[in-house]
Design a protein around this nucleic acid. Structure first.
Length: 288
DNA sequence: ACAATGGGTGTGACGTGACG
DNA sequence: CGTCACGTCACACCCATTGT
């Protein structure tokens, strides 16, 4: 968590906000992806914390929602706690230990990169120059979605829900217009709804909760780090927790000339789909 | 090498709801 | 009721990959 939160928000304020969110959660208001209730919650929160800047409330709300979802994920191997219990124990989070939360923030946010190599691979999408013969398409440059943008999209989806492309564009994916986000969402939901093992890996296979594949306690061998499971096994919406693209360890760093992150991901995915595993020297190359 | 296929991006038409 | 803004859908176009 941003250390600034320590200065901007007191523990009691954070606790209160969590309680409010939990209340809405208990009423099925958050993260069910079916409504625009996220904005309702924000309105209430902004009214409740009227002395705070709007962006402060929004930012903390987003942080807490993601954290709470992550906390629930961590409890997946345990009986699901009742929401009332979550309210009482701060959703299993240790609010008094923000440093620990900060340490896990990337995990909470679904970043697959605790090492910077993966980030380097995905932070810039390939800017393909496409010859567009039609007049209307002249001078148009195709801009591909980065994984980071897609994750921001997923976060916005969780907060604002489907259809609030304007809000998502304004608050989460500022590099894309609402129309572009809508178009991206169209393909995203189409992919979710049409699972087939023949599909290649795509940006839409990246979920918000891609996390922890690199953790040694989760996989005793490098091969287990290659746990791809795209949307084909996902029956949930909005990049749900069941959807993982676990790009284990440093496996994407296989080739110096593999400039395109998308291509790298596609390549890696294809190796898995085809049942052919990665050469071991590539798999462990990043650890050299 | 070539054709087929899958996938990504952008555009236009249409539907819908809010507002005056 | 008309207008406007916005979202959804279908489609075009293109690229990358795969199969032959």
């Amino acid at each position: 968590m941003d250390p600034m939160f320590n200065a901007e928000w007191s523990a009691s304020e954070i606790k209160l906000m969590k309680a409010i969110i939990a209340y809405h959660d208990a009423n099925n208001s958050y993260a069910n992806g079916t409504s625009k209730k996220g904005t309702d919650i924000l309105d209430e929160l902004q009214a409740r914390f009227s002395w705070k800047e709007k962006h402060q409330v929004t930012d903390l709300y987003v942080e807490l929602v993601v954290e709470m979802m992550q906390a629930k994920l961590n409890d997946d191997n345990q009986p699901m706690k009742a929401t009332s219990d979550l309210v009482n124990d701060n959703f299993g989070l240790h609010v008094e230990d923000p440093a620990a939360i900060e340490d896990n923030m990337d995990v909470s946010l679904g970043y697959v990169m605790n090492d910077t190599t993966f980030m380097r691979m995905v932070e810039k999408a390939p800017q393909r120059q496409v010859a567009i013969p039609r007049e209307k398409r002249q001078n148009k440059e195709r801009t591909f979605w980065t994984i980071q943008e897609h994750r921001n999209f997923l976060r916005g989806l969780e907060v604002y829900g489907r259809g609030s492309w304007k809000n998502i564009s304004r608050s989460f994916v500022t590099t894309k217009t609402p129309v572009q986000i809508s178009s991206h969402a169209q393909k995203y939901f189409l992919r979710l709804g049409c699972p087939t093992g023949k599909q290649r890996y795509s940006i839409n296979d990246v979920s918000l909760h891609d996390f922890e594949p690199w953790r040694p306690q989760n996989h005793s061998s490098g091969w287990e780090a290659l746990s791809f499971s795209g949307s084909s096994n996902n029956s949930n919406n909005y990049g749900s927790r069941a959807q993982h693209v676990s790009l284990g360890g440093n496996m994407l760093m296989y080739h110096a000339s593999q400039e395109s992150s998308i291509q790298a991901a596609t390549w890696a995915r294809s190796q898995q789909i085809r049942g052919g595993f990665l050469p071991q020297q590539w798999l462990y190359m990043g650890n050299m």
